[in-house]
């Protein structure tokens, strides 16, 4: 028998953790170059430009656009199946369950704006290359900075909590001790990545 739901759910899980996790790490890694000044970030961006255009576009479509659209659209379907109840059952894991969905809703809106404005409009339509100077100019508005920091925090939490639930969904961590250890470790990673984000976002202000 063919259980479409099962394979879609597992694909959603894999796609989120492995593919979109990679995308998140790439973003944090490249953007953290801003900490070392304009040349470092522009250098890192120039390195990516060395990848031949068709391959780069293929990576963007196959490695980001399709997985993101699948994870996002199927994720909305999943989120709509939940009736969040942390008010009645205020356990840590239930709060994480709720936050996983709240961050998801924020990310849907944030990513439409982020991808739509920076990738499709600025880089795609106007043909302006992304650079330190462009971003610094963009981040002059405190509201943009705030929404971007929130977007990064949401993505990082969603990814790190995703590690914990991934391990449960795939039956890697079975007992409560193993599940708790993984959840602590992934929250440490969450804090670390958030700190890195604050540092490189802060470097535009100085």
């Amino acid at each position: 028998m063919f259980n479409a739901t099962f394979y879609l759910r597992r694909l959603h899980s894999l796609c989120g953790l492995l593919v979109l996790g990679m995308v998140l790490f790439e973003h944090i890694f490249t953007n953290s170059m801003a900490i070392f000044g304009p040349q470092a970030l522009n250098g890192a961006l120039a390195m990516m430009e060395l990848i031949p255009k068709p391959i780069f576009l293929g990576l963007e479509v196959g490695g980001i656009a399709i997985p993101l659209l699948f994870h996002g659209i199927y994720g909305i379907y999943i989120a709509l199946q939940a009736k969040n109840n942390p008010g009645r059952f205020g356990y840590v894991r239930n709060w994480n369950f709720t936050l996983q969905r709240w961050t998801a809703w924020y990310l849907v809106v944030f990513l439409i704006w982020h991808v739509g404005y920076l990738r499709l409009y600025t880089k795609g339509v106007t043909g302006t290359p992304i650079s330190y100077e462009l971003l610094q100019n963009y981040f002059q508005s405190p509201i943009v900075v705030l929404l971007y920091v929130l977007g990064m925090f949401a993505a990082i939490f969603h990814f790190c909590n995703g590690i914990t639930t991934f391990c449960m969904t795939w039956g890697i961590t079975k007992g409560p001790r193993a599940q708790t250890v993984v959840s602590y470790l992934s929250m440490c990673l969450c804090a670390l990545l958030c700190l890195i984000t604050l540092t490189f976002m802060g470097s535009y202000l100085i």
Partner: peptide
């Protein structure tokens, strides 16, 4: 359990 509404609908809220 692999069918729609089976174990894949578990969201690990652990309530």
């Amino acid at each position: 359990l692999m069918e729609k509404g089976g174990i894949t609908s578990c969201g690990n809220s652990q309530n």
